[in-house]
């Protein structure tokens, strides 16, 4: 691929042909404010915040503008600044002012853009404020949907479509009434959503936010233990407890993506009902027992059921070595080929 040179606000940068101006700027460490752009997704060009002036005549958007040799881009032209500022002001005039208690506080893209374009109380107070009051959708066990915070960037819709191919959500209605919706705007839990949470992690505000999440004090890099795919994860840890999981962008297996189990299925680790010792049934009631006691019982009962009446189902959650041993045990000790495995996530 050949490279081209373009100028952004007087700075000459080089970019690969096929890149957009926004991509070229980002690759060179230049910030052009944007809200609906996401590196994993095709550009939508809807938020209009990445507006720039091209070659001193044309107002256009940088997220869809392909670089061209010699192109001159201004992000600070007065007309550009005016459009950008008004656009962000409009978003804020329709957005709840609950930043301190908001899940997205300090990582919110709207905050970042607002700071960048220089929003002041005076500039905001000129507007008629109006925030929606759509009830929170809490139907999903892992995340909540707050339409009132939604800025309609469509990143969630594109994630569900382009990356996940699920299409649980889409745009509905139109104009100022438009919102991200399932069929008939039913609770998300009643849709075909698989709760992968890919939209949640990409939401630039907190219209999609993880339930009851705590910020970790540190992160531990690990591999998800749910299935044979082996996704890279960062476990968020606070004290000695896991409080969150984040996909590892660097991991070539999943490049940051996770499924519902990997992302949200960590609460069993510190769950009070988790088994920590073997249980053995005595007089019809399960009671705690030692490992020796439990293993003795297993040997006793297994030897009564050798041959075709026995079957083993192995788990994807244990290592390959353990799985190998289970099938060896089933065939060699129990004398049957009835062995299967649950790795069909």
């Amino acid at each position: 691929m050949s490279s081209v040179t373009i100028t952004i606000d007087g700075i000459k940068i080089s970019a690969e042909e096929g890149m957009t101006v926004l991509q070229a700027a980002q690759a060179n460490g230049l910030y052009i404010p944007n809200l609906c752009n996401h590196p994993d997704l095709r550009p939508a060009g809807l938020c209009r915040v990445c507006v720039v002036k091209q070659d001193d005549w044309k107002i256009t958007i940088s997220c869809k503008l392909p670089v061209k040799e010699g192109m001159v881009i201004s992000t600070e032209d007065p007309a550009v600044q005016q459009i950008r500022k008004n656009t962000v002001e409009l978003l804020i005039a329709n957005h709840p002012m609950t930043c301190l208690t908001c899940e997205a506080d300090s990582k919110c893209e709207l905050q970042r853009v607002a700071h960048y374009v220089g929003i002041t109380p005076d500039s905001i107070n000129r507007y008629r404020r109006s925030v929606r009051s759509i009830p929170l959708d809490t139907s999903n066990p892992f995340f909540d949907i707050d339409h009132n915070k939604c800025i309609m960037c469509g990143i969630c819709v594109r994630t569900c479509d382009e990356l996940q191919n699920i299409n649980a959500i889409d745009y509905a209605q139109r104009g100022v009434a438009s919102l991200i919706s399932t069929l008939g705007n039913k609770p998300i839990a009643e849709s075909r959503c698989e709760s992968c949470g890919e939209c949640v992690v990409r939401c630039p505000v907190a219209a999609l936010a993880t339930k009851k999440s705590l910020q970790p004090m540190r992160e531990v890099r690990s591999i998800c233990s749910y299935c044979g795919v082996g996704c890279g994860i960062h476990l968020g840890v606070r004290g000695d407890k896991i409080v969150g999981v984040r996909g590892d962008q660097e991991n070539p297996v999943n490049r940051g993506s996770l499924c519902v189990k990997g992302r949200f299925g960590y609460r069993f680790i510190n769950h009070p009902e988790r088994l920590t010792t073997p249980l053995v049934k005595k007089d019809g009631v399960l009671v705690e027992a030692s490992w020796d006691e439990a293993l003795d019982r297993i040997v006793e009962k297994f030897s009564e059921h050798k041959g075709e009446k026995f079957a083993a189902l192995a788990s994807a959650r244990i290592t390959n070595e353990d799985n190998y041993l289970i099938q060896k045990f089933t065939r060699a000790v129990m004398g049957t080929n009835n062995i299967d495995h649950c790795a069909r996530l």
């Binding site: 915040v49 459009i83 656009t87 409009l90 109006s130 309609m152 139109r174 104009g175 100022v176 438009s178």
Partner: peptide, 20 residues
Amino acid sequence: EIESCGQCVPCRLGTKQLLD
């Protein structure tokens, strides 16, 4: 405001603000 498709911010929220 009613007939705006709603996809871009200036039209969706701009017409609403002008109207308000």
